[in-house]
Design a protein around this nucleic acid. Structure first.
Lengths: 184, 184
DNA sequence: ACACAATTTGAGTATACACTCCAAGTTTGG
DNA sequence: CCAAACTTGGAGTGTATACTCAAATTGTGT
């Protein structure tokens, strides 16, 4: 772990290099050499700060998953529109992180089941949040209905995100809003 | 290219080995050694039948993309329900191929744009088919509306497929039908 | 200014990978 | 039954990869 300023800065450069490489070319592009070249660091320095390449990648992926969820603290408040708006904002403000997020689920083979399980846990938590927001808006909704509706809307949002990752010209926010109208 | 019976069988074993490895563990799992071991073939035989590992993978991916589209010949007929039903059937009947399909877009050779572009072309074709089916059901629909609706429904279906790839317990067909209902 | 821990360097290691080569074996049509 | 066409085994090649290490340099609290 970095103690001095230089070390902390180097660490940040390595993380940023890893993130941009993952966003541009997926796991395949994030080789140690590529990361070190982009961060302007020699491999020895890399291993002074990280135990393995995997560690750097996991940190980037974990951070990207976390970034999707706006303020997990504010549980129990917030409307469905807030949640959808937060998702849209995430894509507009942090496209690089967003792309890593979209890639993470399918590409996470590196740590085999670990990454996938983490992603699934995250998804389930999100379904709960969306479902609760839906129930708050319509108190006649059963728990089961809420889960089904939330799963449907989140599926649509993730599908549109996937579409955006394929082609950044795609107007994600426009379709995300339409999906919220249609599936809520 | 294989001419004799033995060669044709070996080729089939290699393709099947590649497909199952891709479905189980993504690109990372589909090493030459793993493919050859599973197909019970030595690397020399592999290269007698394929120019490269890439060729085998591309064939599997291409086949999986093709398998999603039911009878491209029947253009101009078929209802939206038929198209959705075909997509659902694809997941139920060919789960292995389906998983490769879901993985293909981002994970393929994420660096080489070839796979991504092919996937995008395929998606656009599908949006057209879905849009036409929607217009056939509601003749007052403009072309633009059809594209938007089709993009939305396909986004949802793909997102649910993505969800299924994460966790095969997920009842894909149930949610796919619910999504389709919203557009009826 | 000093001691010493943190950081950097860069050559070096081991390994896994895709791919080659060709002698020996098998299948096929005539 | 033969010869040509095809297939196979498996040792071997070159290369890219993640990772190590000891020595040199730099940052920090006192």
């Amino acid at each position: 772990m970095a103690r001095y300023q230089v070390g902390i800065q180097t660490e940040a450069r390595i993380i940023e290099a890893t993130r941009s490489l993952l966003a541009e070319g997926g796991m395949e592009a994030a080789t140690l050499k590529a990361i070190c070249d982009r961060a302007e660091v020699r491999s020895g320095s890399f291993y002074n700060l990280f135990d393995s390449k995997e560690e750097a990648i996991i940190r980037v992926v974990r951070e990207s998953i976390k970034a999707v969820d706006p303020d997990p603290q504010q549980k129990g408040t917030g409307t469905l529109d807030d949640l959808v708006a937060a998702y849209i904002r995430f894509f507009e403000e942090k496209p690089k992180v967003a792309k890593v997020y979209v890639m993470a689920a399918l590409t996470g083979e590196s740590s085999s089941n670990g990454a996938r399980r983490r992603f699934l846990r995250h998804h389930i938590r999100r379904v709960e949040r969306f479902g609760e927001a839906m129930q708050r808006a319509d108190s006649s909704m059963t728990d089961d209905d809420a889960v089904v509706s939330a799963e449907l809307l989140l599926g649509a949002l993730d599908g549109l995100a996937f579409r955006w990752a394929l082609d950044q010209e795609f107007e994600f926010s426009k379709y995300a809003l339409l999906a919220a109208e249609k599936f809520a």
